Computed example of a mutant assay.
Amino acid sequence: MTVTLALAGDTMLGRGVADLLAKSNDPDAYVSDGVREYLSEADATLLNLECCVSDRGSPWSAPGRILHFRAPPQAVDLLAELGVTCTTLANNHALDYGYGALLDTRAHLEHVEIRAVGAGATLDQAREPAILTVRGLRIAVISVTDHPEEYAAAPGRPGVAYADLRSGVPDWLTDTVARMRTETDVVLVSPHWGPNMTAAPQPYIRAAATILADAGATLIAGHSAHVAHGVAPPVLYDMGDFLDDYGVDPDLRNDLSLLFLVTVDELGPVRLRAVPLKLDWCRTVLAEGAERSWLGRRFIRACEALGTAAVLEDGLLVVDLRARKGG
């Protein structure tokens, strides 16, 4: 049995996107028909929700924290219209408007039957995997972030599943991965790791990926850099962004990203097809022309640097995920 997962990176529905959501919940206003057609090919869709979803709370006050992202409750209706199955919440914006807003986020997602993982009311809930049954295949989703420590859940305190990956992968995380490997068919770990605006994974991220794979992770799909990185099976180091209102770095071009369609079976990932995207202001479309070509060349080079071959097939970037296992 094989299933196709659509995996997308950071999705920020606050600020400018939130202003538009107050006027329209039409999916085409945010994600084009062409992109939605690729999403419809998937049996399940997962993304990293880089904001809270609530109409209450106040900005988290901490030295150096200047960006706070909050989406209105109707944002979950957009996610449902896009066919999102599960969102990861372990990231550096989940608590931007406090504990209550984080709990609202989980409640709003639950209301539209979208699973949430990586943050919760207690430490145990934040760390607990989501188990999806997709066409008979049981898929465990584990979400964790390596920043910021101040957002970490604790016994009796809401927060995110935090792991200081720069210092190594904690036992609780490898134990969770190993346990899920015995209880499910596929173990997907989705870490929010590393700083923004980097073109390649840092050494500590590559080391952590190897440890997670050795513990039993069959697929690792990261995010945080806002730039899509290369692939070293079974690791998608960074999926870039999917929808936002962010400023554009003229060199790294964080407005050019990828949607990953990954075929998996009980033995793990089989094949990856990456769909080139262009992130306009608050709307994501298929990348075309020179921008599509530039993005393709960058991704192929990034994979080559990790010892992986990516090829262009019918306008998509394709990687054989059974070719080698790297980290």
Rank of each mutant, 00 (worst) to 15 (best):
G247P: 01
G247T: 12
G247Y: 11
V248F: 07
D249V: 03
D249Y: 09
D249M: 06
D249G: 07
D249C: 05
P250Q: 02
D251Y: 14
D251Q: 13
D251K: 12
D251V: 15
L252G: 04
L252R: 08
L252F: 07
R253F: 10
R253I: 03
R253W: 09
R253M: 06
N254P: 02
N254H: 01
D255R: 04
D255C: 06
D255P: 00
D255I: 07
L256T: 00
L256E: 07
S257Q: 12
S257I: 00
L258Y: 14
L258R: 03
L258D: 07
L258Q: 07
L259F: 04
L259G: 05
L259R: 01
F260N: 14
F260K: 04
L261I: 00
L261S: 01
L261E: 02
L261P: 03
L261R: 06
V262S: 10
V262W: 12
T263L: 03
V264T: 08
V264L: 10
V264C: 11
D265I: 09
D265W: 09
D265R: 08
D265L: 09
E266W: 04
E266C: 04
E266D: 15
E266G: 11
L267G: 13
L267Q: 13
L267H: 13
G268E: 04
P269F: 09
P269A: 15
V270D: 03
V270L: 12
V270A: 03
V270P: 06
V270Y: 01
V270Q: 11
L272R: 07
L272Y: 08
R273K: 12
R273N: 04
R273V: 00
A274M: 00
A274C: 06
A274S: 14
A274L: 06
A274H: 05
V275Q: 00
V275D: 05
P276Q: 10
L277N: 03
L277Q: 03
L277K: 04
L277T: 00
L277W: 06
L277Y: 07
K278D: 10
K278S: 14
K278R: 15
L279Y: 08
L279S: 05
L279D: 05
L279K: 09
D280V: 04
W281E: 12
W281A: 12
C282L: 13
C282M: 14
C282H: 10
R283S: 07
T284N: 04
T284M: 07
T284W: 07
V285H: 12
V285T: 15
V285I: 13
V285S: 14
L286N: 06
A287L: 02
A287G: 10
A287T: 00
A287F: 01
A287R: 02
A287M: 05
E288C: 00
E288Q: 13
E288R: 13
E288I: 02
G289D: 15
G289N: 12
A290F: 02
A290K: 10
A290D: 14
A290S: 11
A290H: 08
E291I: 02
E291C: 02
E291N: 06
E291V: 02
E291L: 12
R292P: 00
R292E: 09
R292K: 14
S293Q: 12
S293L: 10
W294D: 06
W294Q: 08
W294N: 00
W294R: 12
L295I: 05
L295Q: 09
L295N: 08
G296S: 13
G296C: 06
G296K: 08
R297W: 05
R297V: 09
R297K: 13
R298S: 12
R298C: 01
R298W: 11
F299D: 02
F299V: 10
